[in-house]
Write a protein that binds this DNA or RNA. Sequence first.
DNA 1: TGGCATACTGTTCAATTGAACAGTGATTGG
DNA 2: CCAATCACTGTTCAATTGAACAGTATGCCA
Lengths: 211, 211
Amino acid sequence: MPPTPSSELTARQREVLGFVRDHQRRHGHPPTTREIQAHFGFASQTAAVDHLRALARKGALQHHAGKARGHLPALAAALRTSLLEIPLYGTIPAGLPTAAEQEPDRYISVDAASLGVSARARLFALRVRGDSMTGANILDGDTVFLTPRDPRPGAIVAALIDGESTLKRFLVQRGRPFLRAENPRYPDLLPATELIIQGVMVGLLRQQPAA
Amino acid sequence: MPPTPSSELTARQREVLGFVRDHQRRHGHPPTTREIQAHFGFASQTAAVDHLRALARKGALQHHAGKARGHLPALAAALRTSLLEIPLYGTIPAGLPTAAEQEPDRYISVDAASLGVSARARLFALRVRGDSMTGANILDGDTVFLTPRDPRPGAIVAALIDGESTLKRFLVQRGRPFLRAENPRYPDLLPATELIIQGVMVGLLRQQPAA
DNA sequence: TGGCATACTGTTCAATTGAACAGTGATTGG
DNA sequence: CCAATCACTGTTCAATTGAACAGTATGCCA
């Protein structure tokens, strides 16, 4: 994998790459060679083709040969493949969001690299309600990202405990798992009947309220 | 604008829409009618065309007629247009990230709606270093999103004060602006020579460290 | 019972678009 | 000074792909 392909690119090639990225972002699909030609005012289509070839050779673009439409550019691979669309299941998930066909409120788009997760990670999001996790610097209104997997002690989890869903720190003492709010005003939760871990927290997104 | 177009869609139409979205996300460009045909095993290309027409009519897709390649689908408009690519300028920005042609470390992709900002917002990101803002629940390692604009008193800002860049709360007392760390161990900062506000914090992204 | 939308089959045509070929001139590194 | 890369012009061809036309069968609504 090239470390920073753009460093080897010429100024003109960066311009073309910029146009391709921009077009992709704004239109949802890469430009055609003729659109590139028109944008830069080339008299020949080949000028665009040459640039694309150079960009593909240097790893800045990946070229799906022949395949017409998306034919040439496609975004820098990393950028594309790593974009996650994370379903937001509301404040208090009624069921297991991973299992049921439950409709998410909406989707949150974040790239995997920025969250430090794999591009294939299956994440879901929940809106935090209440102040029980302020000790872990998680505030009311924050959106937390979770992945369904078994938690290690100390992890922050969304759990279904005795039918109610909450965000808490998962701890184990003498082989017995329990949940602890990161706020001294809340007591530890010992599961009476069952403790179902819906997901382990991997990240957080906050909207800073306007001052 | 249709409120929730998917509600009026038939099961089959939702399937096709799902395939189009998925293809878009994974390949960076929409599928062709023939790719849809192949995926669902239609004997006729027209079956795919019919579905796309229905989806466009119901507002679930937007159809760029004739224009071959990205020709038909394109994502649901809102989803596409609102994706921000936010440049990350490192831990301590040396200059004004908005002014200079300074190369960002990398880009963070987040959709505008999830950050509560306009799709046209110009944001940049900084990595937080140190514990001077723990009182505002901003931790070492967090990534903060900022927009260049004049701060209101109480806002959290990235500021260039006497040549050094820091994240602090912006306050005004008796007409005099100053910066306050949200950590009692740090003193207030009164600008000796100049106070340049680089940006106002609008959001935050955190990678939860594995427990 | 007729009309309309859905969900397809099967075929043909034209437009969009990628790709190749044959050049020119400037620059740069060995 | 030669080779390679860059940055183009100008033309032609073939593949991909969208679009249209003509049907069939089903279910639903009124």
